[in-house]
Amino acid sequence: MSEDAKIRIRDLYKIFGEDPQTALEAVKGGMGKPELLRETNHVLGLCDINVDIKDGLTTVIMGLSGSGKSTLIRHLNRLIEPTAGQVLVDGEDILEYGPSQLRDLRRRRMSMVFQKFALLPHRTVLENAALALAVSGVERGDYEKEANKWLDRVGLEGNANLYPHQLSGGMQQRVGIARALVSNSEIMLMDEAFSALDPLIRTDMQDLLVELQGELQKTVVFITHDLDEALKLADHLVILNEGVVVQQGEPQHILLHPADPYIEDFVSDINRARAQGALGDDARRRSLGQGRRRRDRPGSDARGRDQHLRRRHLQELPGHQGRRSGRHAEDEGPRQGAGADQGLRQRHPHEDERVRGGGAFHR
């Protein structure tokens, strides 16, 4: 495995149940996930995971719902404790950390962007973005300056004094990204960070991440069920199935040389020539830090840009007469109501297994 890895995952197992250590022996003896559940009433979450997450690059972990991808990312900051194995960050096994070391890891060295935004509703955009610095004891005058810098950078100029319910879904997720950047952590964990957004806003957020990563070169771990998203973002791609790493490597290599029928099925409908060109373009853009500039997009700020994309998408729908669509429109202004943060997802009538011609995993 690579010597320039920021995080090394070694022989990692996670078994859910009343007696995981006994179940672990059965798994090491060859028992699979279905048999383990049927015979012992234990659930195999992760099985013998060995992955290197390279410093300064984006590692995408992808798989079907129940494959273990979200379970895996939560081991990296010990939101979930493993049954066995090691998680090494800068050569230190974080499973040996005490409470103070673990707090320092989560506050200073790692940040996390969640699918459901996880903003505090009683705090302003600025206060949410500056949360890591505030709880670390930084003076308000100092953390306001840093928070405003990153809010401006992600396209939220002039929105610092608003509250989360006044923002669209895309804007709320921008706050989540700004919060991760304000903490100045070397590692960003992103668990299906864009899955709750409608398709057009989701594309815009992917472009923002590519642009920021090209400039900042943080170590990013990104979870997704969407193959198109994985191919766009990943420097290193890890594919899970039933808690096992099926294949990992460069996205282009996996696309052209699938190692398993499970992977072949999901890449079979991808236009390989087009995908290779897109992968090459994205790689060049990441290396040069030249993602599409946010301020060059339609609209003068994040709200105007998001609304422009929604309106354009609605106008292209067959039979659209200017009506609001519960499937494609999030809002026409500041958000109101607790349910408004549910973004859109393209869905297949057969259990979400694929969208866009077989190019996505469902959760």
Rank of each mutant, 00 (worst) to 15 (best):
L233R: 06
R297L: 11
W150Y: 15
Q101P: 06
Q315M: 11
L44S: 07
H75G: 08
R140E: 13
E330A: 09
V182R: 07
A130R: 01
E127Y: 02
G339D: 12
S300P: 09
D260Q: 11
S183F: 00
G357S: 09
A329M: 13
D19L: 02
Q321V: 00
Q276N: 09
N77Y: 07
A360K: 07
M110Y: 02
A118P: 09
E127M: 02
E3A: 03
V238I: 14
Q321D: 12
L200W: 02
L233N: 08
D226Q: 03
Y163P: 08
A118E: 15
E96K: 15
A160G: 04
R354I: 13
V135F: 00
R303Y: 10
A180H: 10
G339C: 00
V220D: 02
I9M: 05
P318I: 09
E139N: 07
N161P: 01
S183Q: 15
Q247P: 10
P334I: 15
G137I: 03
R153M: 13
F361L: 12
H362M: 08
D55A: 05
Q290S: 11
D352R: 12
V182Y: 03
H122C: 05
L255A: 08
T22A: 08
L240C: 01
L181E: 12
V87W: 05
G66W: 01
A130S: 10
E250L: 03
V87K: 06
N184D: 15
H348E: 10
L181C: 07
L126I: 12
I49F: 00
D331M: 01
A193C: 00
R293P: 07
A275H: 11
L212K: 04
E35K: 03
R8V: 06
G304S: 14
D198G: 02
E186R: 14
S268E: 14
G56M: 03
L119H: 09
Q290C: 06
A278K: 14
A259C: 06
R297V: 01
D265P: 00
I61H: 09
P251Q: 07
L227W: 13
S136Q: 10
F194V: 09
R312F: 00
G299M: 02
V210E: 11
R312D: 11
N159V: 12
D352F: 00
R312W: 00
D301F: 05
F117V: 04
L233I: 10
